[in-house]
Design a protein around this nucleic acid. Structure first.
Lengths: 233, 233
DNA sequence: AAGTGGTCTAGACCACCTT
DNA sequence: AGGTGGTCTAGACCACTTG
């Protein structure tokens, strides 16, 4: 007889996932303890744990100490989206990148901007409007607010040399980010900047970042018509 | 002297992340080997590995055998989005859910649908159009195609009882999913169904699923005005 | 060819949560 | 109070990838 091949954690994950998919473990059902599965499959609990961790990250199961492991009763679809620096995104498309600063304006944050940060009081900020171009055509319009308390250096940046987007990503790492996606109709100002018709439906990405509790920047990036955001593999 | 507290992998992750954030490890720079970090911090390589795994999942570093661990030269923002069953989504908002089947139509898949699946040949499918309602008001409009070879049971489902969305999620698990998000202007048909003006900007979620290599379903879900898709914490 | 991350085992203890 | 997942250690071997 041949020796049983040793199971890798991906093997274990595939077995468990197959059982979930086949409804051998029903929606909402409780799975056996890691240790029992380990014994059944002939590996250690550590290996089962690693497999379960992956299934939990994928949103298939829910694990609780003492409560055990359950198949999610309400399955969800979980998608991961990568947003690169706009320059890289354009260049990855094989198009020539350029950017154009439109305006800067120093002011206390208005209420909608405060709301994005969850701030109770207005904060001194720099508003930056800029346009990203691909092959010299409008690609994305940025309306950005940068917190001057957290990021005073932004006042010294030459936006003719580098976009605020790229400068911030390179010099102001964040520890927390929130993103929102929605559709808007182009108003006259946006239409003029993006070179599209008024009323055109546009995808908007709103991104807000913090360094620990300190606000860094919030940006509303409105893409030119035809923009599609795709999930990672 | 007091004993040094034992480090958990989250501690290690926080230390490494702090160094990346502070640019102690520059963009693109190579980090020390796991084992050296383990020795420096006083834990085992396993613990460092677990921390690194988390940072890699977050999109901060890139790891390669022999190549070592590098800080990503082009930082990316990685967002995770959970899409529940529409019924759960509506109920989580504290609104009453209902759905209305609009039409079904059996036909070979047209070219755009084939393209979503990456199929070379047309396949026999069932097209289902349906409307999800929240508090009796239009919430989301679905244009769905279900592969009849993979999922013949769909013909027997009573869509007055359960939406195709919910039935599929409960009975047809998938192993692969692709999602795309974009904005469209409401045409006359969509505007009539969603009760909005023609030309209104609407967010559309396109979702395609497979069981291994076999196509299951693809859906274009167009949300009512005001819909916002938010990333998970 | 050799260095580095990836994984597995075996055992122990911890921490959270349900009962 | 006890059961379950979460984590750490220590050591070994493996597999990928680069030089």
């Amino acid at each position: 007889m041949t020796a049983a091949p040793r199971l890798s954690w991906t093997d274990v994950r595939n077995v468990i996932r197959a059982r979930i998919v086949a409804r051998d473990y029903a929606l909402g059902a409780r799975l056996p303890r890691d240790e029992d599965i380990a014994q059944e499959l002939g590996c250690t609990r550590t290996t089962v744990h690693r497999a379960m961790q992956d299934l939990a990250a994928a949103g298939l199961i829910d694990r609780k100490r003492k409560g055990g492991t359950h198949v999610l009763a309400d399955p969800i679809t979980r998608a991961t989206i990568d947003i690169p620096v706009t320059r890289s995104e354009v260049e990855a498309l094989g198009r020539a990148y350029a950017h154009r600063m439109i305006s800067t304006h120093r002011a206390p944050s208005p209420a909608p901007i405060m709301a994005r940060f969850g701030a109770a009081q207005p904060r001194e900020m720099l508003q930056i409007t800029a346009l990203h171009l691909a092959d010299a055509r409008p690609y994305m319009l940025e309306d950005r607010w940068v917190d001057l308390a957290t990021c005073p250096e932004i006042m010294t940046v030459d936006f003719a040399q580098i976009s605020a987007n790229e400068w911030l990503v390179r010099h102001k790492p964040y520890t927390r980010v929130e993103m929102r996606f929605f559709a808007i109709n182009a108003d006259a100002g946006i239409a003029a900047q993006l070179g599209c018709n008024v009323g055109q439906a546009l995808l908007t990405l709103e991104r807000t970042t913090w360094l620990e509790a300190a606000p860094i920047t919030t940006v509303q990036a409105t893409a030119a018509p035809g923009y599609v955001l795709a999930s990672k593999s």
